[in-house]
């Protein structure tokens, strides 16, 4: 059998502009966790035991050594970690031992990383969320809509953000972000 390896959705896009760098971050596994009705305490405990992370409040994320956990809704979170193989979801399911329902999401999302001093200025144009420090601190995360495309934005550092959107419209999303950056830098 042919030896197949996964290809990045945008071919490993990497572009440096004067004060912003935009790259595709590939090789990340994404597994969504759904918390069963009334099972938040058990889920919190299982997540802490498995990944050493406290389940963050909605609108926030928590980062450990290898994992980042994004709370996407009252009963839902998205676990992100480096893993390029198909066994990411079975491994998470086994580690949580039934405390959450898990779904493999890796192929559904494209992940862009935007960084540099001009990042917030570029994002102000397409992101409807308030990204000021007082409203969107480091580790804050939120789902929203950018240029009519559903997106998830996460603040990794002072001047670095991750943008996630549907992999099926990855090129359109990249174009929207790229355009915003070129128009503001």
């Amino acid at each position: 059998m042919a030896n197949l390896s996964p290809a990045p959705i945008l071919g490993g896009y990497d572009k440096s502009l004067p004060d912003v760098r935009l790259i595709e971050r590939s090789g990340l596994a994404l597994v969504s966790l759904a918390i069963p009705l009334g099972g938040e305490a058990a889920a919190t405990q299982a997540i802490r035991a498995a990944f050493g992370l406290d389940l963050p409040a909605p609108g926030m994320s928590a980062a450990g050594k290898a994992h980042r956990l994004i709370r996407t809704g009252p009963d839902q979170a998205l676990l992100m970690f480096d893993n390029n193989t198909a066994n990411a979801q079975p491994a998470v399911r086994a580690a949580l031992n039934g405390a959450c329902y898990t779904t493999m999401q890796t192929d559904a999302w494209v992940v862009l990383a935007v960084s540099g001093p001009g990042t917030r200025r570029a994002l102000e144009r397409i992101c409807p969320l308030d990204l000021h420090d007082s409203a969107f601190a480091v580790d804050a995360a939120g789902r929203t809509v950018m240029e009519h495309m559903s997106a998830l934005i996460l603040r990794e550092g002072d001047d670095s953000f991750l943008l996630l959107s549907a992999s099926s419209s990855a090129r359109s999303f990249l174009h929207a972000v790229e355009t915003s950056i070129t128009h503001t830098s």
């Binding site: 809704g73 009252p74 839902q76 929203t144 559903s150």
Partner: peptide
């Protein structure tokens, strides 16, 4: 319905 959000 918060479709482009937390789906609440």
């Amino acid at each position: 319905y918060h479709e482009h959000g937390d789906r609440s």
